[in-house]
C-alpha cells in the first residue's frame, strides 16, 4: 500500500461520503455545499488517473459554474427569508432497496469481470495532446458542441425571460 493508494482512498472517501450526504440531507443548501466536496473529490480522482486538464476543467465548470447555477436555482425558487430550505422525499425505502440491489449487482459485475488492464504511460502534460485530438479526430463533435452551447445559451435566456403580460 503505497502513497498513491492512500491518496486514492482519501479521495474516494471524500467523494462517496459527501455524495451520500448530498442525497440524504433534507436541507437543500447543505446538499449544495456537500456537492462541492463531491466535485473536488472527483477532480482528485481524475488527477490520480493522469487527467490533469480534465480535473481543472471539472473544478472550473462544475464548481465555478454549475454549482453556482444550482445555488441560484435554490435561492430563486424558495423564499429567501426562509432559512431552513427543505426538500420533501418520496418512496425512501423502496428506492433505497432498489438502488442497493442495483449497486450490488454492478459492483459484483465490476469485480468479477476480467478487465484488460495495461496502464498506459501517462504523458507529462495531457493538454497538448487533448488539443491535437480536439482539432483532428474529434473536430466535428467539437464544432457541434460549440453550436450546442450557443443554442443552450440563447434557449435558456429566452425560456427564463419574464413575459410582459
Amino acid at each position: 500500500m503505497n502513497f498513491y493508494d492512500i491518496i486514492f482512498y482519501i479521495f474516494a472517501a471524500i467523494t462517496l461520503l459527501s455524495a451520500l450526504f448530498v442525497v440524504t440531507t433534507r436541507n437543500i443548501v447543505h446538499s449544495a455545499f456537500y456537492l462541492l466536496f463531491t466535485f473536488f473529490g472527483v477532480a482528485g480522482i481524475y488527477v490520480l488517473l493522469g487527467a490533469d486538464f480534465i480535473a481543472i476543467s471539472q473544478i472550473l465548470i462544475y464548481v465555478g459554474g454549475i454549482l453556482i447555477l444550482l445555488l441560484f436555482g435554490v435561492m430563486l425558487t424558495n423564499k429567501i427569508t426562509n432559512v431552513e430550505i427543505r426538500t420533501g422525499t418520496v418512496h425512501m425505502l423502496p428506492a433505497a432497496i432498489a438502488t442497493g440491489i442495483f449497486m450490488g449487482a454492478v459492483v459484483v459485475v465490476m469485480v468479477w469481470t476480467e478487465w484488460k488492464s495495461e496502464p498506459s504511460a501517462t504523458p507529462l502534460t495531457t493538454t497538448t495532446n487533448i488539443g491535437h485530438l480536439l482539432l483532428t479526430d474529434y473536430v466535428l463533435i467539437f464544432e457541434l458542441l460549440g453550436i450546442l452551447l450557443l443554442v443552450a445559451l440563447i434557449g435558456a435566456a429566452s425560456i427564463a425571460r419574464r413575459d410582459k403580460e
Binding site: T15, L16, A19, L20, V22, V23, I28, S31, T38, V42, L70, G73, V74, T77, T87, G88, T89, V90, H91, M92, A95, A96, A98, T99, G100, F102, M103, V106, V107, M110
Partner: peptide, 19 residues
Amino acid sequence: AILFSLGIYGIVTRKNAVM
C-alpha cells in the same frame, strides 16, 4: 458504480427539482 447508485437514489427520492 457507488456514485452512480447514489445519484439514482437522489433522482428517485427527492421532490425538489433542483435536488
